[in-house]
C-alpha cells in the first residue's frame, strides 16, 4: 500500500522535501513507517525522540495501523503563541 508523508517546520529542511510517497506492507504501523522514513531521510534520525506524528488531522500512537492512501505528518514539538 502507499501512504503520503508530509514534513513540517525544520523537518522539511532535514528531509530535503516537504513530502514523499512511500510503499509499505499492508497494515504497517506508524512505528514501521517512522523506521522507513528515518532510513530514507537519515538527517531526521537525531530528531527521533522529539518526533510527533499525525494521520490526517489526528495525533496517533506509534502502534496505529495505517491504511492505503493515509496522509501522515511528521513534525517537531509544536510552538504556537
Amino acid at each position: 500500500m502507499q501512504v503520503t508523508v508530509h514534513f513540517y517546520s525544520y523537518f522539511k529542511e532535514l528531509a530535503g522535501t516537504p513530502q514523499a510517497a512511500l510503499d509499505l506492507p499492508p497494515q504497517a504501523t506508524l512505528d514501521f513507517l517512522r523506521a522507513r522514513v528515518l532510513e530514507q531521510f537519515p538527517r531526521l534520525a537525531p530528531m527521533q525522540k522529539a518526533m510527533l506524528a499525525a494521520v490526517g488531522v489526528e495525533y496517533q500512537p506509534w502502534s496505529f495501523a495505517l491504511s492505503e492512501g493515509d496522509e501522515v505528518s511528521f513534525f517537531p514539538p509544536v510552538q504556537g503563541g
Partner: peptide
C-alpha cells in the same frame, strides 16, 4: 486554552 495550544496545536516559529 493557551497551555493546551502550546502542547498540541501544530504551529511552529522560526
Amino acid at each position: 486554552l493557551i497551555d493546551e495550544m502550546k502542547r498540541i496545536v501544530p504551529i511552529w516559529k522560526r
